[in-house]
Simulated scan of single mutants.
Amino acid sequence: MSQYLPLFPLNIVVYPGEKLNLHIFEPRYKQLVLDCMMDGKNFGIPTYIQNGVGQYGTEVEILNIEKKYDNGEMDIRSRGVRTFKILSFDKTAPGRLYAGGEVESIVYQDDEDIITKTKIQELMQQLYEALGLKGLASSLSDDFNSFTVAHQLGLNLEQEYALLQMKSESDRQELILQHLQNILPIVLETERLKERVKQNGHFKSLTPPEF
C-alpha cells in the first residue's frame, strides 16, 4: 500500500531505528517541519546520490523540536521508522515549497545468520581496537543488526545506500563481512607502519638470530 510523503532529500543514508538530529534552515524545509508537526505526519529522507534523488529512503518521525531560533530556523530530533521506495516524485508537493512523492514501504526479511554475525562481531572488535576505540568495541551489543552498526564501518555512501536496498538481513551481513575482511588488513598494516615510524631514531634492543 502506497502513501504520499513530504520529502527531504539529503546526501546521507538514514536507517530504520536510527536517531537523527537536524538543523533546519531553508524556508522549504522549515515549512515541511511545521506542516508535519501541525498534522502529526512523518516525512521521508530519500538519499541524494550521484547528482540525483535516489529511489530509496527512510520515513522519519519528528520526536521534538529541540530549539527554535528568532529567524525561524530549528533544531529537531527525529528517528527513522521504515524504508520506502519512491513510486513518483514531485519537485514541489501540491501547494507547498518542499518536495513530495508517492512511496511504498519495503518489507525486510529477518533471516540473520548467527555464524556470519559472530564473524562480524569479532572483526569489528579487532577494527575498533586497532583504531584505539576500545570503548566502541566494548559497547557493541549482542543483539546488533546490520542497520545499527552500518555507520560505524567506514562504508562509503554508495555502500550504505546498497545496504538500505537489500531486503535480506543475511545479504546485508555478507556485504558487511566482506567489507570488514577487505579493510581490516589495511588498517592493521597502517597501524604497524605508524608504530615503525614512531620507533625510527630510537635505540633498539634487538636479539640477533642464531646461526
Rank of each mutant, 00 (worst) to 15 (best):
L7R: 02
G17S: 06
I24Q: 00
R28F: 09
R28A: 04
Y29E: 05
V33S: 00
L34M: 06
G54T: 08
E59F: 03
E59Y: 03
V60H: 07
I65V: 15
K68W: 08
E73N: 15
S78Q: 06
L87E: 05
D90S: 06
D90A: 09
K91M: 05
G95L: 01
A99S: 15
E104G: 02
S105A: 14
Y108N: 02
D110K: 10
D111Q: 13
E112T: 04
I114K: 09
Q125K: 15
E129I: 14
G132H: 08
L133S: 06
L133E: 14
K134M: 13
A137G: 10
A137I: 13
S139F: 05
V149Y: 11
V149C: 04
L153I: 01
L157S: 09
E158V: 08
E160F: 12
A162C: 07
M166S: 07
K167V: 10
K167D: 02
S170M: 07
D171H: 10
E174G: 11
Q178S: 13
P185N: 15
V187S: 08
V187D: 11
L188S: 12
L188P: 03
R192W: 07
L193D: 13
L193N: 15
V197A: 07
K198I: 09
S205H: 08
S205W: 04
P208M: 10
P208D: 10
P209L: 06
